[in-house]
Amino acid sequence: MSHPPRPLVIGVGNLHRHDDALGLEVAEQVKERLGDRVRVVPFDGESTGLLDLWVGVGSVVIVDAIRSHGAPGQLHRFEGDLTPLLVESATTSTHGLTVGEAWRLGRSLDQLPDRLVVFGVEGEDFSPGIGLSPAVARSLSSLTGAVVAEVLRDPSVPPPENTDA
């Protein structure tokens, strides 16, 4: 008997670009909280790879740092339509697609998951270097909580082990 594929959480980021590491950090914390109940993938590659990651998966949650001139640490949530994430994409190189562009490409190719949610947190410092800026670091715990709550809405997530204990 086949089981539905587990929900997928993808943390997008670059460890060496300060606040851009946010998605990777959240992915790590979600993994600690939920263990094998969901599939968690840190992703620092080129975004056409996202299409391969989410192929055949019902529910996907992506976490990424964003830059939209808002207050650092501010949380954004997008579901289904990622058009707002395309605002700055006109000037980017297609040698590296953004998450929004990967979504557009996936839509053109009919390669999108059934449900796609993106959590973005406003970053402050994307310069080379390691470590989140203070406002973004403070958002880490509430963002992780929001991602966990989002994932647990999916009925295919198995219950935690030892529930009878």
Partner: peptide, 10 residues
């Protein structure tokens, strides 16, 4: 761009 190309030539 390739995204619009993909619509007609998937």
């Amino acid at each position: 761009d390739a995204i619009r190309l993909a619509k007609d030539h998937p």
